[in-house]
C-alpha cells in the first residue's frame, strides 16, 4: 500500500451491531486505523448516505469490512455496491461468514416468521393483523421497505469475498492482526479465513480425556469441574469443531463453545461435523440409548447449526410442495 492513506468502508447488513462495537473495542488502536485509512463509509457511526458510496469510483475503497447476513434486497444491493467499489472485501463476523443468528430463520420460512413476530408472539398487540408491506401509502407519499427474503444467505453466496474474519464478534486482537496484515500487504491467499486453522480445544486449557457422553446438561443444571473438558461433563461444547482465535473465552469460564468462529479449513458443513464428532462419543450401544441421550439435548439443530446454517450443505429447511428457491434472491418462484 502506498504512503497515501487508504480508504476503509464498514457496513452492516443483517446483524446486531456487535461487530461495530468490536471494531470500537480496538480502543486506542482505532487511532492507528484512522491514521492508515480514511473512513469513507460507516453508517453505524457516521452519517453516510448510500448515494455517497454509490458515487465512488469502482475499486476506490481499499478495504471494506462487511458484517451481517443477507436477508433482504437492501442487504444484497449494498453487497453488490460495496463489492464493486472495494478492492478487498472482507466478510466480517459470523453473520456475513456463515449466516449466524439471522440465518437460523432458515429453519422456518418468511410467512411463519411474520405470523409469529407480528401476530402470535405474546408481546405483540396487533389486532388488525398488519404485516410489513413493501409499499404503503401515507399522507406524505409512498413508503417502501426492502423485499424480505425467505432464505438468509451469506455474503459469499451473493458476491465474491476476498477474506473472512469469523467470530461473533471477531476478537479485537484478530481485527488488529487483520488490519495490520492489510496495511502491510502481508495477506494470506485470497479466499482465506484469517486466523489459525486449529480448534478452540487448542486454546482451551481444560484437561481432555477420552470421551463418553451419557447425558447432556444445560449450563444451569450442574457446576462443572473447572479443570476438565466441558463436553466430557455433558455440557454441549462446539469447540471440538470450531476454529480457534477467540482464546477459548467461553469454555474457560465454564460455558461451552457456541461455535461462532465457524468450521476449520475444508469443512463443508460445520453443524454436521460437530454432530458427527459428538455422536461418535455418545455412550450408547442401541438406537434407544442414543435417543435417550439426545433427548437431553434440547434443540439439537439450533445447537449444531447456531452460526452456520445458511453456509452449510443443508442451507435451510426443505421448502414444502417441491418449491425451489431462485438462485439470486432466495424468493420462492
Amino acid at each position: 500500500m502506498s504512503d497515501k492513506k487508504g480508504k476503509l468502508g464498514l457496513y452492516w447488513a443483517s446483524s446486531c451491531g456487535g461487530c461495530e462495537i468490536a471494531v470500537l473495542a480496538l480502543h486506542e488502536k482505532i487511532l492507528d486505523v484512522a491514521a492508515a485509512f480514511d473512513i469513507v463509509f460507516w453508517p453505524c457511526v457516521m452519517d453516510f448516505k448510500y448515494e455517497d458510496v454509490e458515487a465512488l469510483e469502482d475499486g476506490e475503497i481499499d478495504v471494506c469490512l462487511f458484517n451481517g447476513a443477507i436477508r433482504n434486497d437492501e442487504n444484497a444491493h449494498m453487497a453488490h455496491v460495496l463489492r464493486q467499489k472495494s478492492k478487498v472485501l472482507v466478510a466480517f463476523g459470523a453473520c456475513s461468514f456463515g449466516g449466524s443468528m439471522p440465518g437460523l430463520a432458515n429453519f422456518t420460512d418468511k410467512d411463519a416468521m411474520f405470523d409469529w413476530i407480528y401476530k402470535q408472539s405474546p408481546s405483540t398487540d396487533n389486532p388488525q393483523g398488519t404485516l410489513p408491506q413493501k409499499h404503503s401509502q401515507v399522507p406524505e407519499g409512498e413508503l417502501t421497505l426492502p423485499n424480505f427474503w425467505r432464505t438468509v444467505k451469506t455474503l459469499a453466496q451473493i458476491v465474491p469475498v476476498d477474506y473472512y474474519l469469523p467470530g461473533c464478534p471477531p476478537e479485537a486482537h484478530q481485527i488488529e492482526a487483520a488490519v495490520t496484515a492489510i496495511v502491510t500487504g502481508q495477506l494470506p491467499p485470497p479466499g482465506s479465513v484469517i486466523g489459525p486453522d486449529v480448534t478452540v480445544c487448542d486454546e482451551c486449557s481444560r484437561t481432555k480425556n477420552e470421551k463418553k457422553i451419557k447425558h447432556f446438561y444445560r449450563p444451569q443444571e450442574i457446576i462443572p469441574d473447572p479443570d476438565v473438558c466441558l463436553l466430557e461433563q455433558g455440557l454441549f461444547c462446539a469447540g471440538i469443531g470450531t476454529r480457534s482465535g477467540c482464546g477459548a473465552l467461553c469454555p474457560q469460564v465454564g460455558m461451552g463453545c457456541r461455535g461462532c468462529y465457524g468450521p476449520n479449513e475444508g469443512v463443508l458443513d460445520h453443524g454436521a461435523k460437530i454432530l458427527t464428532g459428538i455422536a461418535s462419543v455418545l455412550d450408547a450401544n442401541t438406537p434407544e440409548e442414543v435417543d435417550k441421550i439426545l433427548d437431553t439435548l434440547p434443540d439439537p439443530a439450533g445447537y449444531f447449526y447456531r452460526f452456520h446454517l445458511p453456509q452449510s450443505l443443508l442451507r435451510r429447511r426443505a421448502l414444502g410442495n417441491g418449491q425451489k428457491q431462485t438462485a439470486k434472491t432466495g424468493e420462492a418462484t
Binding site: 480448534t199 480445544c201 481432555k208 470421551k211 469447540g239 471440538i240 480457534s244 461418535s280
Partner: peptide, 9 residues
Amino acid sequence: RCSGCRICN
C-alpha cells in the same frame, strides 16, 4: 492442525 480434543481416541 490437530487440537487434541480426543474425540477420535
